[in-house]
Simulated assay, not measured.
Amino acid sequence: MTRKTTPRRRTATPKATPVTPRTVLLAGLGAVVVTRREALRKLEAAAARVETLRESADAAAIEAGRQVARLRGQAEAIAERAQAEFEARFIKAKPAGRKPRRAVRPAAKRARKRA
């Protein structure tokens, strides 16, 4: 059995609207309304983005403050260890029982021989 094909329905082509001052005015008003609506949507979207950007900037600032505090603590710990090592090596390492050395005296001038 073969299928019978049904003829396709043709869609009616829209008739062109005649260009009159009235149609031009209505088209212009429609364009203004659509433009205004889109502009309002864009403004609302921009305002929402400003809020999200502000929130993300606040969160980034808080996180940066935390990292700075953590790094400051690490730096202070390193500085304390370095200070302790310096004191152990150079200040406290001097032997206490020894007398300090005397300053070196300049050599005495030789007496001239008389002839």
Rank of each mutant, 00 (worst) to 15 (best):
T23L: 07
R36F: 11
E85L: 13
R3A: 15
R41S: 09
R3K: 15
E38A: 14
V68Q: 12
A77Y: 03
A103Q: 11
A39L: 11
Q74T: 00
T11W: 15
G97L: 12
E44T: 10
K109F: 02
L53G: 05
A79Q: 10
K94I: 08
E51G: 01
E63T: 06
A16I: 11
L53D: 07
R70T: 08
R114Y: 12
R41D: 13
R41H: 09
T5S: 15
A16M: 07
A93P: 04
T35K: 02
A96K: 06
R72C: 00
A60P: 00
G65Q: 04
K99D: 07
V104R: 14
R22H: 06
A103L: 11
R72F: 00
R41C: 10
A111S: 13
E63F: 00
K15D: 10
L25Y: 11
K92P: 01
L25D: 10
A79S: 08
V50A: 08
E44W: 01
L40S: 05
L29S: 13
E80W: 02
S56R: 01
Q74V: 00
E44D: 11
L43E: 14
F86V: 11
A12F: 08
V104A: 14
A45E: 07
L71S: 04
E44M: 03
R112M: 07
A93K: 03
A59D: 04
K42M: 08
A75W: 01
Q83F: 12
A93H: 04
A57K: 00
L29H: 13
A16W: 07
R37E: 05
K42D: 04
D58R: 05
T17S: 08
V68Y: 03
V34S: 11
A82W: 02
Q83K: 13
A96N: 01
V32A: 15
K109Q: 08
